[in-house]
Amino acid sequence: MNFYGIRAIYRFEMARTFRTLMESVAAPVLTTSLYFIVFGKAIGSRMGDIDSIGYGAYIIPGLVMLSLLNESISNASFGIYMPKWAGTIYELLSAPVSWIEVLIGYVGAAATKSVMLGMLILGTARFFVAYQIAHPIWMIGFLLLTAVTFSLFGFIIGLWADSFQKLQVIPMLIVTPLTFLGGAFYSINMLPPIWQQISLFNPVVYLISGFRWSFYEIADVDVAVSIGMIFGFLMVCLTFVWWVFKSGYKIRR
């Protein structure tokens, strides 16, 4: 194991984050605060409780997940896309690092950053609504697992993309709709039966449901199924990255 190599990549990525601390932190915190004001306070005050949880508190896990997914994907995809774009990837390709070490470095840094951000948003939420966390360990577990999985997904997008447009297109066209339809702002039980069935094909539903369970012990789908789905998606991403590195697809000519 090239421990120094992993550390070098990790530090490089974290340094990039801290160089742009304002953009990295201010934007998501501001967005989330706006959500709380609009959905939590303004609209939420006229909404009934869902599963006996006040609407403002109900949307917190979903909002955290929303930021977590977006940040994980954008951090990791940008992290690996930049060296490709700037040409500095030559060094990574010529270095004695294995694909798993590259992955630990980039995905580790992206996940670290989004977990920190998730915590920050939870802290921000305290200013707007009171909420309790029933299972803090599980909550952290979901946070970490989701951050890692979606950083990995972002990494794949970054490897695949060969323009800034492509870097944006998957998050915009796929991830944003999936997160909005993933039950961040509602329980899927509120949907007509047919849409409930369709929602079960949306992986984000399982994430948000599981995460919300760790707060309030209420869930749209069984927690075990949620955990299983995240692990499944993690495995799919890992296999894909493994294949990308083995074949040299889009990286080694």
């Binding site: 090239n2 120094y4 190599g5 070098a8 530090r11 490089f12 340094a15 160089r19 270095a95 004695p96």
Partner: peptide
């Protein structure tokens, strides 16, 4: 955006 020192430190680490 990296400094000279940071980039050579990175390279050394990357090569183990």
């Amino acid at each position: 955006f990296e400094s000279v020192w940071a980039t050579v430190t990175f390279s050394r680490g990357l090569f183990g």
